[in-house]
Design a protein around this nucleic acid. Structure first.
Lengths: 228, 228
DNA sequence: GTGATTCGATACCCGTTAGTATCGAGTATT
DNA sequence: AATACTCGATACTAACGGGTATCGAATCAC
């Protein structure tokens, strides 16, 4: 792309009658999330998505090469966004104990607000299986996400000098599995999954860890590394 | 159905040139499980299923009213079969402690051998969402399954006089969620889910329960249940 | 054996939907 | 202002797949 003179965004925004490329892309993606989440990926047509975005098929196909690519884009976009949100839960505080409670909160929030996402992931996971490329992509993405969570957990553990109940990478898998699994169950039968359930389960799994950190904070010792 | 004279099965089996209704139904169901599991429900055509069963569409439609009904049949069939297998894990022994270990084993077995099933369930769950009837059916079936597991857990707890780490119904939900969630993760990335992971997690969740039962067996007391 | 009935194969219909060709309105470039 | 270019709407195609009508053959009832 030649870096031609671009009029300032503010100046153009008001006088522009046709939305910019990025705008339509974003609108289509948002609409796709909506529509796919509602009716399912397979059951939704490209025209549906376009209509929900207030456009026609042509607009979609001028921004995305195929329906598959649209699906892929939406998954990547949302997955990234969700991962960063989750990691923020870990990193956002310098009180590690609070971080633990926060993990549960963040995940519960995610489950409740993002029920749509769980449905999509389930269907995508099913769809992905018969396309090797998509399958590998999904696997790698999942691996990255797990690694990120795993590192965060390791950091937490080392910072406190308290061992995790399971190896960090396995704990990460379990976190994903429980959160996703409960999300799915909640999607099938919301009444079956009370709000506090995930928190309780995590507390059970991490009981020793929590007890040890509490004890450590109560009677701090100079020896191991600790940060208040 | 009038109970007309039926020739003995053995006599007819060898001389019969056309398979009986039940046979073709079974063949179609088996083929459907195969094909749907491989390519996904939405991506499979009725002709595909028929071909895999060594028949044609007509045969399928003479046994099942629609593709949806075929899908429903396969889900019910397999779900039932799987639930009874799981419950057998609980009931098959009169040593309750061993039963707990067995639950983990059964579930792990199920996860590993039945990866296909998890994919199917995921897709079915996604598909079910836009059809109210299917949705309700799935919800009720799920509820029954949970209740069955829940009752088994309660029985276990009362038999031992040791309280469960969570209310039985919630524990049942968690069991389903973890098993399903890990199944999905394993489907995406088999390396990420070691065989013993589920067992370890269950052990963590039920740690107190296990400890109490062990203690109780070592030094049984007639008095009320106590937890350290 | 003979007629009634069922099952499954073949051929067909019809709706649906991913994808495309084209063209005009908007937008950058000079 | 005139030019080249981009984006998106409209109209279309091509193919696919669910479902059905029909008909021959195998089975059952008598």
């Amino acid at each position: 792309m030649s870096a031609g003179r671009q009029p300032s965004a503010a100046a153009t925004a008001s006088r522009r009658t046709r939305p910019t490329r990025a705008e339509t892309r974003a609108r289509v993606l948002a609409a796709a999330l909506e529509v796919f989440g509602q009716r399912g990926i397979a059951a939704s047509t490209v025209s549906d998505v376009a209509a929900a975005a207030g456009m026609t098929k042509g607009a979609v196909y001028s921004s995305f090469a195929s329906k598959d690519e649209l699906v892929l884009a939406i998954m990547e976009e949302h997955a990234m966004q969700r991962l960063t949100a989750a990691l923020a839960g870990f990193a956002e505080t310098d009180d590690p104990q609070a971080a633990i409670g926060r993990v549960g909160t963040v995940l519960v929030e995610a489950i409740r607000s993002d029920a749509v996402w769980h449905r999509l992931l389930a269907e995508y996971f099913a769809l992905a299986h018969h396309d090797p490329d998509t399958r590998l992509a999904l696997r790698n993405r999942r691996r990255e996400a797990r690694d990120a969570v795993s590192r965060a957990l390791s950091g937490l553990s080392e910072g406190l000098g308290v061992p995790l109940p399971l190896p960090a990478d396995q704990l990460a898998v379990v976190l994903f599995a429980i959160s996703n699994g409960l999300g799915i169950e909640a999607g099938i039968d919301p009444d079956a999954v009370p709000d506090e359930l995930l928190g309780r389960v995590l507390a059970l799994i991490a009981r020793d860890f929590l007890a040890a950190t509490a004890q450590r904070r109560a009677a701090p010792q100079p020896d191991p590394p600790r940060q208040p």
